[in-house]
Simulated scan of single mutants.
Amino acid sequence: MTALAERTEVAHGYRAGRTLPLRVELVRQLKRRRTLVMGAVLAVLPFVLVVAFAIGGEPDGPDDRVTLMDTATASGANFAATCLFVSAGFLLVIPVALFCGDTVASEASWSSLRYLLAAPVPRARMLWSKLAVALGLSLAAMVLLPLVALAVGAVAYGWGPLQIPTGGALDAGTAAQRLVIVIAYIFVSQLVTAGLAFWLSTKTDAPLGAVGGAVGLTIVGNVLDAVTALGDWRHFLPAHWQFAWADVIQPTPEWGGMIQGASVSLTYALVLFALAFRGFRRKDVVS
């Protein structure tokens, strides 16, 4: 009777919402080597670009087009914006795919997923905890790059207004506000990659397959966007709007492209996250 009473007390004290706290999951993910390596890569990139500009001279935009690359060395703010410009299309895709694609599949590859669920951690609770931490780390990666770039650029090129390639300038305070908006938009635009990686992570026991699949599908989207024969169909591709944030780096910002891009990205992301939760709820977990 005593043992039965003790088991009953444990059952009454059980709270599904207290299982796998975000703090515990965050600490686990921060200690992983891939998190540290990815953070180091993003922190080193601005130093690499400074050295490249010092060796190669003044940067030029591709194909004689006027881009942020032309004003990269004008100030620290310009250098930070340039780092976002050169990395948003691919480099920032990798941490998002890594953090979101590795999160569930890694547990399965370690054969610890079934033991985690037997803790017992409800499946939905586990997914929410892992997704929240993965998205938090993805956002941290996107914030880390421009912060380091701003500091490095200020030392290398001085602190000053953000020079707009097409003419004009934004004072330091306004430039900082616009860069915050840019980072927020890039994060929203990368939610499609996050959704792909997370959904694949619930479908496979191979973390590399989930991460690689998300990166590969993102590249396919970029390739399709380059096919001008698709016409207006490209507007339904998240990749079509990935650089819409450039309209904010203007004296008078334009919001139309960012609103359309955010709408497309959020729609795809919500569908993919819903598929991940629905499929994992019915999945026979044996790993």
Rank of each mutant, 00 (worst) to 15 (best):
A194N: 11
W199C: 10
I219M: 13
Q190T: 03
A194V: 03
L217T: 11
I181W: 12
K203Y: 08
L208Q: 03
G213K: 10
P207T: 06
S189Q: 12
G213Q: 06
F187Q: 13
I219P: 02
L217P: 05
L196H: 10
L196T: 06
L208Y: 05
G216Y: 04
L217W: 07
V211P: 00
L196I: 14
S189F: 10
G213H: 06
T202G: 07
G209C: 00
A214F: 03
A184R: 09
V192A: 02
L196W: 10
T202V: 10
V188L: 10
G213N: 04
A210M: 05
T218E: 13
L196F: 15
G216N: 02
Y185R: 11
G209K: 07
I186Q: 11
I183P: 12
V220K: 08
V188Y: 03
V192F: 01
T204W: 12
P207V: 06
V182I: 09
Q190S: 13
V182T: 15
T204V: 13
V215P: 02
S201I: 14
I181Q: 07
A214K: 07
G216E: 04
T218G: 09
V211S: 02
T204N: 12
A197I: 01
A214R: 01
Y185M: 05
Y185Q: 11
V215K: 05
F198W: 06
L196P: 10
D205N: 12
T204Y: 09
L200S: 03
D205A: 15
G209F: 09
V192Q: 07
L200P: 08
V211L: 04
L217N: 05
Y185I: 12
V192K: 05
S201A: 15
L196D: 01
V220N: 09
Q190L: 11
T202S: 02
T218M: 09
L217K: 08
L208D: 04
L217E: 08
F187A: 15
V188F: 03
G212M: 09
I186R: 06
F187I: 13
L191T: 15
A194P: 10
T204M: 11
A210H: 09
T202R: 10
G209M: 11
A214E: 06
G213S: 02
F187C: 13
I219R: 00
W199F: 15
G195C: 01
A214I: 03
Y185W: 02
A194F: 09
K203I: 01
G195Q: 00
T218S: 15
G209T: 12
V188R: 04
V192T: 07
A210L: 06
V182A: 13
G195D: 01
Q190K: 14
S189Y: 11
L196M: 14
V182L: 07
L200D: 05
A184L: 14
I183V: 15
L191W: 05
W199E: 01
T202W: 03
G213F: 02
L217Q: 06
L217A: 12
A184F: 10
P207Y: 06
I219D: 04
I183G: 05
F198S: 07
G212N: 04
G209Y: 00
V215W: 01
A206S: 13
L208E: 02
G209S: 08
F187T: 13
G216I: 04
V192N: 04
A206W: 08
G209W: 02
I183N: 12
A214H: 01
L200E: 08
